[in-house]
């Protein structure tokens, strides 16, 4: 009788290790590595060059515009998206 009760818990030990390990390996390969590449490329000419690049007025204006547009569209989508979801269900 003890065997079924033991199975009631989520798989421990090897199963747990395989699931978490598999998920993390996949994430490291497909998400982690590309992100690391972005950072190493950004800093490949040294930190000073990086700071110089993002304090360029054109870069600053572009970042400001991106954030501004997001700040306008996100609340709009939040309100009207909920309304649309409400109507189609």
């Amino acid at each position: 009788m003890s065997a079924p009760v033991r199975r009631a818990r989520p798989p421990a030990g090897l199963g747990r290790f395989a699931l978490v390990g598999g998920a993390l390996l996949f994430l490291a390969l497909f998400l982690g590595l590309p992100l690391i590449v972005v950072f190493t490329e950004a800093l490949s000419k040294g930190f000073a060059a990086y700071v110089a690049a993002i304090s360029n007025p054109i870069a600053l204006a572009a970042i400001k515009l991106t954030l501004l547009v997001a700040a306008i569209t996100v609340p709009l989508n939040l309100v009207f998206g909920v309304a649309a979801a409400w109507t189609i269900t």
Binding site: L19, V20, A23, F26, F30
Partner: peptide, 8 residues
């Protein structure tokens, strides 16, 4: 893989 990641 998304199912695996979400589950974990």
């Amino acid at each position: 893989f998304g199912l695996l990641v979400a589950w974990v």
